[in-house]
Amino acid sequence: MPENSASIASFWDAFAASFDEEADHGLRDPAVKTAWANRLRSWMPASPADVLDLGCGTGSLSLVLAEQGHRPVGVDLAPLMIEQARRKLTAAGFDAAMMVGDASNPPTRAGTSFDVILSRHLLWTLPDPQEALRRWIGLLRAGGRLVLIEGRWASAEPGEDQSHEGRPEPMPWMGGVEAERLLAALRPLVKAARVEPLPDPTLWGRTIQDERYAVVAFA
């Protein structure tokens, strides 16, 4: 883990209690959850697939994947987020591994071979996102896929706090990353990649003005 992992984990743990109040985090609104479930279904291979959910937060996407018959493993640096994820999946009757760890360099105990690696709005938090992408692709089975739900929001939403106290390393993709920039980083590493814009306000619980998208890349 990064040398300052404790301070980073504390930063995110401070949001754990209220994290699911955001419509796209908690998926408490049935319409929002259905919208994400439909998208995930379109990006995933046939179930059951082994899916590594990196930066899983409180486990909302992992829960949807489990409900669709997949075998998710969640990794997040924040212990309080992982506690919520475990409770959420256990309450729904699923025995899925949710563990504390560095999502940019997943712990070996999470597994070393997956059909899908999924992350949502994680890359902007990493000091070396391109190295993380290389590591993640190395964990994919032949024909496996990388599903990256990302966006570029800082310039479109200047009122949002983009600070990250306790993080001394520079974050080159702070505020998000444009789809074309992410594709350029991926092209040398994968066989194929496509972008799917995600402007639907149902996914976010509100109308958005910035760039939101998913990249699906194949190893």
Rank of each mutant, 00 (worst) to 15 (best):
T108Q: 13
E196D: 13
R87F: 06
R86K: 14
S60E: 03
S7K: 09
L89A: 10
G55C: 00
P158A: 09
D200L: 10
V32N: 04
L63K: 02
L52N: 08
A92V: 08
R134I: 12
I149S: 03
E169V: 01
L122W: 02
G55T: 09
A185K: 07
R86F: 04
L80G: 02
F218G: 00
I8R: 03
P79C: 07
P201E: 00
L183V: 10
A46E: 15
T58R: 02
D161N: 15
P30T: 06
L146P: 04
L61S: 04
P170G: 10
S163N: 13
E160G: 05
R135T: 14
L182T: 00
G111E: 13
H164V: 11
L186F: 04
P107W: 08
R145N: 00
A91Q: 14
P129F: 02
I149T: 01
G57E: 03
P168W: 09
L118H: 15
F218Q: 12
A46C: 01
S18N: 06
F114E: 05
L146T: 03
A85N: 07
N38I: 08
L133E: 09
K88S: 09
W153C: 03
R145C: 09
G74Y: 10
F15Y: 14
A17L: 08
L40Y: 03
W173R: 00
M81D: 02
L203M: 01
A217P: 06
A49C: 04
V195R: 09
L40V: 11
L146D: 00
A217K: 03
A66D: 11
P127Y: 05
R212G: 07
P188C: 13
P170Y: 00
R39Q: 14
L186P: 02
G166M: 01
A31W: 02
L148Q: 07
T58Y: 05
L182H: 06
V216A: 00
L80P: 06
A103T: 03
P199A: 00
E21W: 01
F19V: 05
H70F: 04
Q84K: 15
S60R: 01
T34M: 12
D20K: 04
I137A: 02
S119V: 06
V73K: 01
M81E: 06
E21S: 10
R120K: 14
W173P: 05
P127W: 01
P48Q: 13
A23N: 04
D20H: 06
L52G: 04
P170K: 11
W153N: 01
